[in-house]
Amino acid sequence: MSITKHLVSRSPRGVLTSKPIYTRLLPSEQAEFEARAMSEGRSLSNMARLFILMGMRVADEGKHMQGRTQQQTTLVEGD
């Protein structure tokens, strides 16, 4: 009788696992990052992915807000 082991992926389906993104942190940032991941019961990779996705959303919102401000400025100047 043979036992087959199935590999379990912790990444969401469709996530590129062959192209990791590397980054460097200061020792104090690394310690804070690890503590936050541990307090939320997340792996370091999952925590990094979460922060990256949140940061991209915030950046997109900033672009939309900046576009609205420019439109309002143009309208006021054009009157």
Rank of each mutant, 00 (worst) to 15 (best):
E34M: 12
E29P: 00
S11M: 11
I3P: 00
V58I: 13
R42H: 09
L75R: 06
Q72C: 01
M1P: 02
G41F: 12
E77A: 15
I52V: 15
R24S: 10
M56C: 02
G67N: 05
P27L: 04
L25M: 15
M1W: 02
T73N: 13
Q70A: 04
S45W: 04
R36E: 13
M38S: 14
Q72W: 01
R10G: 14
E32D: 15
Y22L: 04
L75H: 02
D79M: 03
L50W: 07
I21M: 12
K5Y: 14
M1C: 00
F51T: 05
M47E: 15
E32L: 14
A31D: 11
A31F: 06
Q72N: 04
M56E: 14
G55H: 07
V76M: 06
F33T: 09
S43F: 03
L53N: 02
Q66H: 08
S18R: 01
G14P: 04
H64P: 00
R49N: 09
L50S: 07
T17V: 13
S18G: 01
V76Q: 12
S28E: 13
L25A: 10
E32V: 07
S39D: 06
L44V: 12
E61M: 05
Q72D: 02
E61Y: 03
D60N: 09
H64T: 14
A48T: 01
A35C: 02
R36T: 12
N46C: 04
Q66N: 10
E34Q: 13
Q72R: 08
F51L: 11
P12K: 10
L16T: 04
E32S: 14
K19E: 11
G62K: 05
E34Y: 03
L16N: 11
P20N: 05
L16Q: 13
Q70E: 06
V76E: 14
E34G: 00
M47F: 15
S2P: 07
G14I: 04
F33G: 14
D79Q: 11
H64G: 04
I21F: 11
M38Y: 05
L44C: 09
V15P: 00
Q70M: 12
E29R: 07
S18Y: 01
H6S: 12
F51V: 03
I3L: 13
G78A: 15
R57S: 08
M38V: 07
T4P: 00
R10I: 12
I52K: 06
K5F: 12
D79K: 02
R13W: 03
M56Q: 08
I21Q: 05
I3V: 02
G41C: 04
Y22K: 10
A59L: 07
G14N: 08
A37R: 02
T4I: 08
T73A: 13
